[in-house]
Amino acid sequence: MTGLEFPLALFLLANLVPALHVALRRPGRADPMLVALLFGSTGVGILVLLAHGGGGPALIDVALVLALLAAISGLAFARRAWHSPEDSHD
């Protein structure tokens, strides 16, 4: 433990706030999906940091599941849920 894990996890979490804020104000459905992917990849980073910062090794398994779920939801979005260009921004 370097003592950095917890502050860095907080920093990554803070990164998500402006992304969420902006994505929800942009029209269309593509940007919220991108932010969902951002949550996936950032969430994996946060979880592995917390696992090492005292949360216990089980959080690494949670991180793995989160990574897989983000991938599956992204593919499902692209293939099944996103049907019209008007759904997108500009």
Binding site: A30, L37, S41, A67, L68, A71, G74, L75, A78, W82
Partner: peptide, 9 residues
């Protein structure tokens, strides 16, 4: 995963 997803989107 992310390579596949970004290509799909």
């Amino acid at each position: 995963a992310s390579a596949g997803v970004s290509y799909a989107i």
